[in-house]
Design a protein around this nucleic acid. Structure first.
Lengths: 200, 200
DNA sequence: TTGACATCAGAACGTTCGTTCTTTAGGATG
DNA sequence: CATCCTAAAGAACGAACGTTCTGATGTCAA
Protein backbone atom coordinates (compact mmCIF):
# COMPACT_ATOMS: atom_id res chain seq x y z
CA UNK A 1 0.00 0.00 0.00
CA UNK A 2 1.17 3.51 -0.60
CA UNK A 3 1.95 4.62 2.90
CA UNK A 4 0.72 8.19 2.93
CA UNK A 5 -2.45 7.47 1.02
CA UNK A 6 -5.14 9.20 3.04
CA UNK A 7 -7.85 6.60 2.55
CA UNK A 8 -7.34 3.82 0.11
CA UNK A 9 -10.11 1.88 -1.54
CA UNK A 10 -12.86 0.91 0.84
CA UNK A 11 -11.50 2.60 3.93
CA UNK A 12 -13.12 5.87 2.88
CA UNK A 13 -16.46 4.14 3.27
CA UNK A 14 -15.60 2.96 6.75
CA UNK A 15 -14.34 6.38 7.68
CA UNK A 16 -17.64 7.89 6.59
CA UNK A 17 -19.57 5.42 8.71
CA UNK A 18 -17.34 6.15 11.65
CA UNK A 19 -17.83 9.89 11.19
CA UNK A 20 -21.58 9.43 11.14
CA UNK A 21 -21.47 7.32 14.26
CA UNK A 22 -19.29 9.87 15.99
CA UNK A 23 -21.64 12.68 15.08
CA UNK A 24 -24.38 10.78 16.88
CA UNK A 25 -22.51 9.59 19.93
CA UNK A 26 -19.36 11.70 20.24
CA UNK A 27 -17.30 8.63 20.94
CA UNK A 28 -15.70 5.70 19.22
CA UNK A 29 -17.04 2.47 20.71
CA UNK A 30 -15.50 -0.96 21.12
CA UNK A 31 -14.41 -3.13 18.23
CA UNK A 32 -17.44 -5.33 18.76
CA UNK A 33 -19.78 -2.37 18.44
CA UNK A 34 -17.86 -1.13 15.42
CA UNK A 35 -18.60 -4.41 13.71
CA UNK A 36 -22.25 -3.33 13.60
CA UNK A 37 -21.32 0.19 12.56
CA UNK A 38 -19.16 -1.04 9.70
CA UNK A 39 -21.43 -3.94 8.81
CA UNK A 40 -18.76 -6.60 9.18
CA UNK A 41 -18.41 -9.51 11.55
CA UNK A 42 -14.77 -9.65 12.49
CA UNK A 43 -13.17 -7.67 15.28
CA UNK A 44 -9.73 -8.23 13.89
CA UNK A 45 -10.68 -6.62 10.63
CA UNK A 46 -12.13 -3.66 12.49
CA UNK A 47 -8.79 -3.28 14.23
CA UNK A 48 -7.02 -3.47 10.89
CA UNK A 49 -9.25 -0.69 9.55
CA UNK A 50 -8.67 1.51 12.59
CA UNK A 51 -4.94 0.92 12.34
CA UNK A 52 -5.00 2.11 8.75
CA UNK A 53 -7.10 5.14 9.64
CA UNK A 54 -4.58 5.93 12.34
CA UNK A 55 -1.77 5.71 9.85
CA UNK A 56 -3.68 8.02 7.56
CA UNK A 57 -4.11 10.50 10.41
CA UNK A 58 -7.83 10.34 11.02
CA UNK A 59 -7.80 8.78 14.47
CA UNK A 60 -5.32 8.34 17.27
CA UNK A 61 -5.19 6.71 20.68
CA UNK A 62 -5.07 7.95 24.22
CA UNK A 63 -2.43 6.53 26.55
CA UNK A 64 -5.17 4.17 27.73
CA UNK A 65 -5.56 2.77 24.24
CA UNK A 66 -8.88 4.44 23.59
CA UNK A 67 -9.51 5.61 20.05
CA UNK A 68 -10.16 9.30 19.57
CA UNK A 69 -10.63 11.40 16.44
CA UNK A 70 -8.00 13.83 15.24
CA UNK A 71 -8.57 17.26 13.77
CA UNK A 72 -8.38 15.75 10.32
CA UNK A 73 -11.28 13.49 11.26
CA UNK A 74 -13.56 16.50 11.27
CA UNK A 75 -12.26 18.20 8.17
CA UNK A 76 -14.86 18.65 5.53
CA UNK A 77 -14.39 18.21 1.84
CA UNK A 78 -14.58 21.61 0.21
CA UNK A 79 -16.52 20.20 -2.69
CA UNK A 80 -19.65 21.79 -1.31
CA UNK A 81 -17.97 25.17 -1.45
CA UNK A 82 -18.48 26.63 -4.88
CA UNK A 83 -15.41 28.78 -5.24
CA UNK A 84 -13.31 29.61 -8.22
CA UNK A 85 -9.76 28.45 -8.37
CA UNK A 86 -6.89 30.43 -6.95
CA UNK A 87 -7.71 31.43 -3.45
CA UNK A 88 -5.00 32.79 -1.24
CA UNK A 89 -5.99 31.26 2.07
CA UNK A 90 -7.28 27.75 1.94
CA UNK A 91 -10.54 26.87 3.55
CA UNK A 92 -9.20 23.44 4.19
CA UNK A 93 -9.44 22.62 7.84
CA UNK A 94 -12.38 24.85 8.53
CA UNK A 95 -15.75 24.00 9.96
CA UNK A 96 -14.87 21.03 12.01
CA UNK A 97 -17.42 19.66 14.36
CA UNK A 98 -19.71 21.64 16.54
CA UNK A 99 -17.34 22.41 19.35
CA UNK A 100 -14.23 23.55 17.54
CA UNK A 101 -14.31 27.17 18.50
CA UNK A 102 -14.56 26.31 22.16
CA UNK A 103 -11.83 23.80 21.61
CA UNK A 104 -9.64 26.33 19.94
CA UNK A 105 -9.95 28.93 22.64
CA UNK A 106 -10.22 26.92 25.82
CA UNK A 107 -7.40 24.83 27.23
CA UNK A 108 -8.57 24.26 30.78
CA UNK A 109 -12.36 24.48 30.86
CA UNK A 110 -12.62 24.52 34.61
CA UNK A 111 -10.48 27.65 34.87
CA UNK A 112 -12.03 29.49 31.97
CA UNK A 113 -14.77 32.04 32.15
CA UNK A 114 -16.37 34.45 29.74
CA UNK A 115 -16.73 38.11 30.56
CA UNK A 116 -18.34 40.75 28.34
CA UNK A 117 -16.25 43.83 27.72
CA UNK A 118 -17.60 47.26 28.53
CA UNK A 119 -16.10 50.48 27.29
CA UNK A 120 -13.41 51.28 24.80
CA UNK A 121 -10.26 51.65 26.85
CA UNK A 122 -8.67 48.72 24.99
CA UNK A 123 -9.65 49.87 21.55
CA UNK A 124 -6.03 50.03 20.47
CA UNK A 125 -5.71 46.32 21.03
CA UNK A 126 -8.73 45.64 18.87
CA UNK A 127 -10.99 44.99 21.84
CA UNK A 128 -14.33 46.67 21.41
CA UNK A 129 -17.27 47.41 23.63
CA UNK A 130 -19.54 44.36 23.61
CA UNK A 131 -16.84 41.84 22.78
CA UNK A 132 -16.65 38.80 25.01
CA UNK A 133 -13.33 38.15 26.71
CA UNK A 134 -12.20 34.58 27.29
CA UNK A 135 -10.40 34.62 30.62
CA UNK A 136 -8.30 31.96 32.22
CA UNK A 137 -8.43 32.42 35.95
CA UNK A 138 -5.07 32.64 37.66
CA UNK A 139 -3.25 35.19 39.74
CA UNK A 140 0.05 35.29 37.95
CA UNK A 141 0.72 36.98 34.64
CA UNK A 142 3.61 38.25 32.60
CA UNK A 143 4.35 41.77 31.53
CA UNK A 144 2.63 42.32 28.23
CA UNK A 145 -0.31 40.06 28.99
CA UNK A 146 -3.76 41.51 28.90
CA UNK A 147 -5.25 40.78 32.28
CA UNK A 148 -8.42 41.17 34.26
CA UNK A 149 -7.30 42.84 37.46
CA UNK A 150 -9.19 43.72 40.57
CA UNK A 151 -8.60 47.34 41.48
CA UNK A 152 -10.47 48.74 44.47
CA UNK A 153 -12.82 45.79 44.30
CA UNK A 154 -13.61 46.40 40.67
CA UNK A 155 -12.80 44.36 37.59
CA UNK A 156 -10.87 45.99 34.82
CA UNK A 157 -9.28 44.75 31.62
CA UNK A 158 -5.86 46.23 30.90
CA UNK A 159 -2.39 45.42 29.68
CA UNK A 160 -0.03 44.47 32.46
CA UNK A 161 3.20 46.44 32.43
CA UNK A 162 6.02 47.38 34.74
CA UNK A 163 7.22 50.86 35.56
CA UNK A 164 10.15 51.51 37.89
CA UNK A 165 9.82 48.02 39.38
CA UNK A 166 6.11 48.34 40.06
CA UNK A 167 3.27 46.76 38.15
CA UNK A 168 0.92 49.07 36.33
CA UNK A 169 -2.18 48.63 34.22
CA UNK A 170 -2.02 50.24 30.84
CA UNK A 171 -5.10 50.95 28.75
CA UNK A 172 -4.74 50.76 24.99
CA UNK A 173 -6.39 54.10 24.40
CA UNK A 174 -4.80 57.47 24.99
CA UNK A 175 -8.04 58.90 26.32
CA UNK A 176 -7.63 56.79 29.44
CA UNK A 177 -5.09 57.10 32.22
CA UNK A 178 -2.57 54.50 33.27
CA UNK A 179 -3.57 52.85 36.53
CA UNK A 180 -0.85 52.72 39.15
CA UNK A 181 -2.18 50.60 41.98
CA UNK A 182 -1.06 51.34 45.49
CA UNK A 183 -0.02 48.27 47.38
CA UNK A 184 -0.58 44.91 45.79
CA UNK A 185 -2.18 44.31 42.46
CA UNK A 186 -4.68 41.49 42.45
CA UNK A 187 -5.01 39.64 39.17
CA UNK A 188 -8.19 37.74 38.47
CA UNK A 189 -7.17 36.14 35.21
CA UNK A 190 -5.44 36.43 31.88
CA UNK A 191 -7.03 37.12 28.51
CA UNK A 192 -6.56 34.06 26.33
CA UNK A 193 -9.18 34.71 23.71
CA UNK A 194 -11.69 37.12 22.31
CA UNK A 195 -15.07 36.56 20.73
CA UNK A 196 -17.15 39.05 18.82
CA UNK A 197 -20.60 38.64 17.37
CA UNK A 198 -21.89 40.83 14.58
CA UNK A 199 -25.61 41.50 14.54
CA UNK A 200 -27.67 41.75 11.40
CA UNK B 1 -29.68 17.66 48.25
CA UNK B 2 -32.41 18.91 45.99
CA UNK B 3 -32.40 16.48 43.11
CA UNK B 4 -32.01 19.01 40.28
CA UNK B 5 -29.04 20.63 41.96
CA UNK B 6 -26.47 20.91 39.16
CA UNK B 7 -23.44 19.95 41.22
CA UNK B 8 -23.66 19.55 44.93
CA UNK B 9 -20.68 19.90 47.22
CA UNK B 10 -17.61 18.16 45.92
CA UNK B 11 -18.99 16.92 42.63
CA UNK B 12 -18.25 20.30 41.06
CA UNK B 13 -14.60 19.60 41.68
CA UNK B 14 -14.81 16.23 39.98
CA UNK B 15 -16.71 17.73 37.08
CA UNK B 16 -13.95 20.29 36.64
CA UNK B 17 -11.32 17.59 36.55
CA UNK B 18 -13.33 15.61 34.07
CA UNK B 19 -13.78 18.66 31.86
CA UNK B 20 -10.07 19.32 31.87
CA UNK B 21 -9.33 15.70 31.04
CA UNK B 22 -11.84 15.75 28.23
CA UNK B 23 -10.31 18.91 26.79
CA UNK B 24 -7.05 17.01 26.51
CA UNK B 25 -8.26 13.65 25.29
CA UNK B 26 -11.73 14.14 23.89
CA UNK B 27 -12.98 11.04 25.59
CA UNK B 28 -14.05 9.78 28.96
CA UNK B 29 -11.87 6.84 29.94
CA UNK B 30 -12.55 3.79 32.06
CA UNK B 31 -13.38 3.93 35.74
CA UNK B 32 -9.91 2.75 36.58
CA UNK B 33 -8.34 5.59 34.63
CA UNK B 34 -10.80 8.03 36.17
CA UNK B 35 -9.51 7.05 39.58
CA UNK B 36 -6.25 8.75 38.64
CA UNK B 37 -8.03 11.72 37.12
CA UNK B 38 -10.15 12.26 40.22
CA UNK B 39 -7.39 11.36 42.61
CA UNK B 40 -9.33 8.62 44.37
CA UNK B 41 -8.76 4.89 44.59
CA UNK B 42 -12.16 3.32 44.31
CA UNK B 43 -13.87 2.43 41.06
CA UNK B 44 -17.23 2.17 42.76
CA UNK B 45 -17.01 5.72 43.96
CA UNK B 46 -16.08 6.88 40.47
CA UNK B 47 -19.21 5.21 39.21
CA UNK B 48 -21.25 6.90 41.92
CA UNK B 49 -19.86 10.28 40.88
CA UNK B 50 -20.59 9.65 37.21
CA UNK B 51 -24.11 8.55 38.09
CA UNK B 52 -24.69 11.80 39.91
CA UNK B 53 -23.23 13.86 37.07
CA UNK B 54 -25.59 12.02 34.76
CA UNK B 55 -28.53 12.90 36.96
CA UNK B 56 -27.37 16.51 36.92
CA UNK B 57 -27.24 16.44 33.11
CA UNK B 58 -23.52 16.76 32.47
CA UNK B 59 -22.88 13.33 31.00
CA UNK B 60 -24.92 10.56 29.47
CA UNK B 61 -24.36 7.06 28.13
CA UNK B 62 -24.38 5.50 24.72
CA UNK B 63 -26.42 2.33 24.21
CA UNK B 64 -23.13 0.50 24.73
CA UNK B 65 -22.75 1.98 28.17
CA UNK B 66 -19.99 4.36 27.23
CA UNK B 67 -19.98 7.71 28.98
CA UNK B 68 -20.21 10.79 26.76
CA UNK B 69 -20.54 14.49 27.55
CA UNK B 70 -23.75 16.44 27.00
CA UNK B 71 -24.11 19.97 25.70
CA UNK B 72 -24.21 21.23 29.25
CA UNK B 73 -20.82 19.68 29.83
CA UNK B 74 -19.24 22.20 27.48
CA UNK B 75 -20.98 25.29 28.78
CA UNK B 76 -18.90 27.86 30.57
CA UNK B 77 -19.88 30.67 32.82
CA UNK B 78 -20.61 34.07 31.32
CA UNK B 79 -20.28 36.62 34.07
CA UNK B 80 -22.82 39.37 34.04
CA UNK B 81 -20.14 41.49 35.60
CA UNK B 82 -18.96 43.31 32.56
CA UNK B 83 -15.34 44.14 32.60
CA UNK B 84 -15.24 47.86 32.43
CA UNK B 85 -12.80 49.38 30.10
CA UNK B 86 -13.34 52.91 31.14
CA UNK B 87 -15.28 53.68 34.25
CA UNK B 88 -15.00 50.79 36.67
CA UNK B 89 -18.22 49.19 37.84
CA UNK B 90 -18.76 47.53 41.16
CA UNK B 91 -18.66 43.81 41.38
CA UNK B 92 -22.12 42.79 42.43
CA UNK B 93 -22.96 39.21 43.22
CA UNK B 94 -22.03 37.39 40.06
CA UNK B 95 -24.99 35.40 38.88
CA UNK B 96 -23.30 33.58 36.05
CA UNK B 97 -25.08 32.46 32.94
CA UNK B 98 -23.78 29.55 30.92
CA UNK B 99 -22.70 29.62 27.32
CA UNK B 100 -21.23 27.57 24.58
CA UNK B 101 -19.17 29.80 22.32
CA UNK B 102 -20.10 27.91 19.19
CA UNK B 103 -23.77 28.24 19.96
CA UNK B 104 -23.28 31.92 20.43
CA UNK B 105 -21.55 32.51 17.13
CA UNK B 106 -22.97 29.90 14.79
CA UNK B 107 -26.58 29.90 13.72
CA UNK B 108 -26.46 27.60 10.70
CA UNK B 109 -23.52 25.20 10.98
CA UNK B 110 -23.82 23.93 7.45
CA UNK B 111 -23.53 27.43 6.02
CA UNK B 112 -20.84 28.60 8.37
CA UNK B 113 -17.14 28.45 7.78
CA UNK B 114 -14.06 29.76 9.51
CA UNK B 115 -11.44 31.72 7.63
CA UNK B 116 -8.20 33.05 9.08
CA UNK B 117 -7.65 36.74 8.46
CA UNK B 118 -4.49 37.81 6.69
CA UNK B 119 -3.22 41.31 6.73
CA UNK B 120 -4.32 44.45 8.51
CA UNK B 121 -6.62 46.06 6.00
CA UNK B 122 -9.49 45.88 8.49
CA UNK B 123 -7.61 47.11 11.51
CA UNK B 124 -9.99 50.02 11.94
CA UNK B 125 -12.81 47.58 12.58
CA UNK B 126 -10.79 45.80 15.24
CA UNK B 127 -9.96 42.88 12.96
CA UNK B 128 -6.32 41.90 13.26
CA UNK B 129 -3.97 39.73 11.30
CA UNK B 130 -4.36 36.18 12.57
CA UNK B 131 -7.92 36.55 13.80
CA UNK B 132 -10.38 33.96 12.64
CA UNK B 133 -13.46 35.19 10.84
CA UNK B 134 -16.73 33.35 11.26
CA UNK B 135 -18.41 33.54 7.88
CA UNK B 136 -21.92 32.66 6.92
CA UNK B 137 -21.92 31.66 3.28
CA UNK B 138 -24.42 33.50 1.10
CA UNK B 139 -24.23 35.72 -1.92
CA UNK B 140 -26.36 38.59 -0.76
CA UNK B 141 -25.36 41.24 1.72
CA UNK B 142 -26.38 44.70 2.82
CA UNK B 143 -24.44 47.91 2.62
CA UNK B 144 -22.43 48.20 5.81
CA UNK B 145 -21.93 44.46 6.23
CA UNK B 146 -18.41 43.15 6.37
CA UNK B 147 -18.20 40.54 3.64
CA UNK B 148 -15.86 38.02 2.16
CA UNK B 149 -15.81 38.84 -1.54
CA UNK B 150 -14.07 37.12 -4.39
CA UNK B 151 -12.02 39.59 -6.37
CA UNK B 152 -9.81 38.32 -9.17
CA UNK B 153 -10.12 34.81 -7.80
CA UNK B 154 -8.93 35.85 -4.36
CA UNK B 155 -10.76 36.03 -1.07
CA UNK B 156 -10.82 39.38 0.59
CA UNK B 157 -12.51 40.69 3.70
CA UNK B 158 -13.92 44.20 3.36
CA UNK B 159 -16.85 46.39 4.25
CA UNK B 160 -19.53 46.43 1.57
CA UNK B 161 -20.53 49.91 0.50
CA UNK B 162 -22.22 51.66 -2.37
CA UNK B 163 -20.85 54.53 -4.41
CA UNK B 164 -22.78 56.17 -7.26
CA UNK B 165 -25.06 53.12 -7.50
CA UNK B 166 -22.21 50.66 -7.69
CA UNK B 167 -20.99 48.29 -4.99
CA UNK B 168 -17.53 48.88 -3.65
CA UNK B 169 -15.34 47.19 -1.06
CA UNK B 170 -14.00 49.49 1.58
CA UNK B 171 -11.02 48.58 3.77
CA UNK B 172 -10.99 49.90 7.33
CA UNK B 173 -7.47 51.20 7.06
CA UNK B 174 -6.43 54.32 5.19
CA UNK B 175 -3.26 52.65 3.98
CA UNK B 176 -5.33 50.49 1.65
CA UNK B 177 -7.29 51.57 -1.40
CA UNK B 178 -11.00 51.15 -1.93
CA UNK B 179 -11.74 48.32 -4.32
CA UNK B 180 -14.11 49.20 -7.16
CA UNK B 181 -14.84 45.96 -8.96
CA UNK B 182 -15.52 46.05 -12.66
CA UNK B 183 -18.57 44.09 -13.63
CA UNK B 184 -20.27 42.03 -11.00
CA UNK B 185 -19.11 41.63 -7.45
CA UNK B 186 -19.14 38.07 -6.19
CA UNK B 187 -19.85 37.69 -2.51
CA UNK B 188 -18.78 34.52 -0.76
CA UNK B 189 -20.29 35.21 2.62
CA UNK B 190 -20.96 37.66 5.41
CA UNK B 191 -18.97 38.15 8.59
CA UNK B 192 -21.09 37.10 11.56
CA UNK B 193 -18.41 36.61 14.17
CA UNK B 194 -14.79 37.00 15.05
CA UNK B 195 -12.50 34.86 17.16
CA UNK B 196 -9.06 35.74 18.42
CA UNK B 197 -6.63 33.59 20.33
CA UNK B 198 -3.85 35.06 22.40
CA UNK B 199 -0.68 33.07 22.64
CA UNK B 200 1.43 32.80 25.76
C1' DT C 1 -23.77 9.02 72.64
C1' DT C 2 -25.93 7.50 69.10
C1' DG C 3 -27.28 7.18 64.56
C1' DA C 4 -27.70 9.02 60.01
C1' DC C 5 -25.29 10.40 56.12
C1' DA C 6 -21.56 11.43 52.88
C1' DT C 7 -17.26 9.92 51.18
C1' DC C 8 -14.51 6.81 49.98
C1' DA C 9 -11.58 1.82 49.90
C1' DG C 10 -11.32 -2.86 48.60
C1' DA C 11 -12.57 -7.25 47.10
C1' DA C 12 -15.24 -10.44 44.25
C1' DC C 13 -17.11 -11.87 39.89
C1' DG C 14 -18.91 -12.56 35.51
C1' DT C 15 -18.59 -10.12 31.20
C1' DT C 16 -16.44 -7.80 27.65
C1' DC C 17 -12.44 -6.12 25.34
C1' DG C 18 -8.28 -5.97 22.53
C1' DT C 19 -4.97 -8.71 20.48
C1' DT C 20 -3.01 -12.39 17.87
C1' DC C 21 -3.25 -16.33 15.04
C1' DT C 22 -5.21 -19.27 11.68
C1' DT C 23 -8.32 -19.95 7.89
C1' DT C 24 -11.22 -18.79 3.83
C1' DA C 25 -13.05 -16.72 -0.31
C1' DG C 26 -12.55 -14.25 -4.40
C1' DG C 27 -10.32 -11.31 -7.74
C1' DA C 28 -6.11 -10.04 -10.12
C1' DT C 29 -1.77 -11.21 -12.05
C1' DG C 30 1.45 -13.58 -14.58
C1' DC D 1 -3.37 -22.76 -13.71
C1' DA D 2 -0.66 -21.49 -9.91
C1' DT D 3 -0.06 -17.83 -6.85
C1' DC D 4 -0.40 -13.45 -4.83
C1' DC D 5 -3.17 -9.88 -2.59
C1' DT D 6 -7.13 -7.96 -0.45
C1' DA D 7 -10.96 -8.48 2.47
C1' DA D 8 -12.69 -10.59 5.69
C1' DA D 9 -14.29 -14.62 9.30
C1' DG D 10 -13.52 -17.00 13.50
C1' DA D 11 -11.43 -18.89 17.52
C1' DA D 12 -8.66 -18.44 21.62
C1' DC D 13 -6.95 -16.09 25.70
C1' DG D 14 -5.39 -13.13 29.26
C1' DA D 15 -6.19 -8.59 30.72
C1' DA D 16 -9.26 -5.03 31.62
C1' DC D 17 -13.74 -3.53 32.59
C1' DG D 18 -18.27 -2.49 34.96
C1' DT D 19 -21.03 -3.73 38.62
C1' DT D 20 -22.30 -4.91 43.20
C1' DC D 21 -21.35 -5.68 48.12
C1' DT D 22 -19.31 -4.97 52.28
C1' DG D 23 -16.51 -1.94 55.32
C1' DA D 24 -14.01 1.91 57.04
C1' DT D 25 -13.77 6.41 58.01
C1' DG D 26 -15.29 11.36 59.22
C1' DT D 27 -18.88 14.79 60.16
C1' DC D 28 -22.87 16.62 61.97
C1' DA D 29 -27.27 16.85 64.38
C1' DA D 30 -30.21 15.23 67.77
Amino acid sequence: MTDSNPSSSRDAEYLAKLQDYYADWKSIPSYAALCDVFGIASKSWVKAILDRLEKAGYVERTPDGMWIPTRQFFARPLSDVSVPAGMPVMVNDTQADYFVIDDMLVDAPSKTTLIPVKGDSMLGAGIHDGDVAVIEKRNLANVGDIVVAIVDGEFTLKTLDKERGKFILRPENQAYPVIRPEGTLEIFGVLIGLVRKYKH
